[in-house]
Amino acid sequence: MTAMVVFAGAAVLAMALAAFGSAYSQGRTGKAAMDATWKKPEVAGKIRTTMMLALVFMEALTLFVFAIVFVLAGRVTPEIGTFTAVAVVAMALSATGSALAQARTATAALEASWREPEESGDSRTSMMLGLVFMEALTLFVFAIIFVLAGNMDSSRILFGSTAVAAMALAAIGSATSQGRTASMAMEATWKQPEAAGNARTSMMLALVFMEALTLFVFAIVFVLSGRAATPEGNLFGAAAVVAMALAAVGSAVSQGKTGAAAMEATWRQPEAAGDVRTSMMLSLVFMEALTLFVFAIVFVLSGMMG
């Protein structure tokens, strides 16, 4: 029963990691809420609502890890023990990544709610949108583990384990850049309340681009999992998903930088918001295309592997 021991060990570590990530993020959010409350006691109610909403998102992340541990526990066999162990750890890592990015966003939203109390509804809406995107990244990892667990056997173990790790890496990359962009959007909300709507629209567009990067890794894992049963497919798939994840992280980092700068430009020069958005989108398109080229070459080569 060594496989079960390995899985159980990995599972408790994963749960601890996820709980730690959620707790740390909730701590930062709670602190930001307390700060906001003493700085602007008049809007304590609104601050509390914003805080509660953010905490729920972070709590759910650890619950997702719990769910995947629960689901995989019934499937552990000596054959796929490695996969299940890697999967729960990958899930915990992506949950931690999402939680930290959410904390960054929520902290900025809470700061906005005391600095510009009239606009706290605006910043809350923007925050919720951002948090949903970051939450979904962990759900993507959840989904891919579920898909891979369905047809996992010893012939695909290398591909499966690498794929979940690659998904987690991509999700962390996307989450980090989303957190960076979203927190700058919150800052824009209080620094230039007139630009709040424009900042939110630009933020959403940028977040969709960053979300898409993890989605591309998801799609390629999905496609390759059908072809990973042969030794060649197994090995090629493992290399391909790592390549995709690396490309996605690179694109995500640069998109995060661009997105954050676009938010700053929006509040510094609200009249130029439309121009800023157009330029931002054009540059994000280029960065995304880089990952798409890797996607295309993996797709084509995997067809040629036979």
């Binding site: 689901v71 019934g74 499937r75 579920f146 898909v147 369905g150 047809n151």
Partner: peptide
């Protein structure tokens, strides 16, 4: 879950 997931696979 195994039944549905293998279908997805």
């Amino acid at each position: 879950m195994a039944a549905i997931a293998s279908e997805v696979g």
